[in-house]
């Protein structure tokens, strides 16, 4: 097959996939406003997505804060700007590192989990069985999961930010004798709503993207058990890529409003 034809087919497949995902998202919005909502399943999914991811996110955030401070500190000392460490660390973590790292971890853990779970249900025809039994599988499986990830990810980001800032504080305290009060005074002296609100808002979008891609790939899994693995894998890859695209858009939009 000629390369150009192959490229066109790839683009066609890309647009086709984008269109399908958009339709899937549109169906989610239709279903989410249509009562009744599966509250029990939603709470269960929130527990799985939020509470069960907390340890992983907290440990990662703590290490990120610790390592980030250790890596940046020598350079700041060279510039004679070690006093600006809390400000720099806090802005970096709150604006960017906290949300994107947490989202990537959740994409790996939750996105693959949702993709594999829904994919196995699909290939074992459990979803078809639910339809036959009169239950709306989309509402029960997809809406609850997407909502859970969308709602829990911002909370996980806030906790990851807090733990990461605490990790950075430990380094500052051990290496620079900075007290807890001075450190957090400096942190909050330099963080403004322009840092806090956009990062929290984009976390909702990150969560929505992870849930949407995971559910879409799992809900549309094909080709038996191999499809389950592919669904999990592709869910992680696409959602991770989508996170960076969304992050870029979020930064551009934030800059527009921040300049205003």
């Amino acid at each position: 097959m000629p390369t150009s034809l192959n490229s066109i087919n790839n683009w066609k497949a890309f647009f086709d996939e984008t269109g399908r995902i958009s339709l899937f998202a549109a169906r989610f919005f239709r279903e989410v406003v249509k009562p009744p909502l599966e509250w029990r399943e939603l709470l269960r999914q929130c527990y799985v997505v939020g509470y069960q991811s907390l340890l992983l996110v907290a440990v990662t955030g703590f290490i990120i804060g610790l390592v980030f401070d250790l890596q940046v500190r020598p350079t700041m000392i060279d510039f004679g700007a070690v006093g600006y460490m809390p400000a720099m660390i806090s802005i970096s973590i709150v604006r960017e590192i906290g949300p994107i790292i947490t989202a990537l971890i959740c994409a790996g853990k939750i996105g693959s989990s949702i993709g594999a779970e829904l994919g196995s249900m699909k290939v074992t025809e459990q979803i078809d069985a639910m339809e036959v039994s009169g239950t709306n599988p989309f509402k029960f499986l997809v809406v609850t999961r997407i909502l859970a990830v969308t709602l829990m990810l911002p909370l996980l980001v806030i906790m990851a930010d807090t733990v990461a800032l605490f990790g950075a504080f430990l380094v500052e305290n051990l290496k620079g004798d900075v007290t807890f009060r001075l450190y957090f005074n400096k942190v909050f002296n330099n963080i403004v709503f322009g840092d806090l609100i956009p990062s929290t808002l984009k976390s909702f979008f990150f969560g929505f993207a992870i849930g949407l891609i995971g559910c879409y790939k799992g809900y549309n899994a094909e080709k038996g058990t191999a499809g389950v693995g592919a669904a999990a894998n592709v869910a992680v890859v696409i959602s991770s890529l989508l996170l960076f695209v969304l992050d870029l858009i979020a930064v551009l939009v934030t800059d527009i409003f921040y300049d205003l």
Binding site: C46, G50, P154, F184, F188, N189, I191, F193
Partner: peptide
């Protein structure tokens, strides 16, 4: 889950309060 959500919301509220105070 309730504790997790409350802790998250409280942390966010504290952050908003301190940033707002500044």
């Amino acid at each position: 889950l309730g504790i997790f959500v409350i802790v998250g919301v409280v942390l966010f509220t504290i952050a908003v309060y301190f940033v707002g105070s500044e």
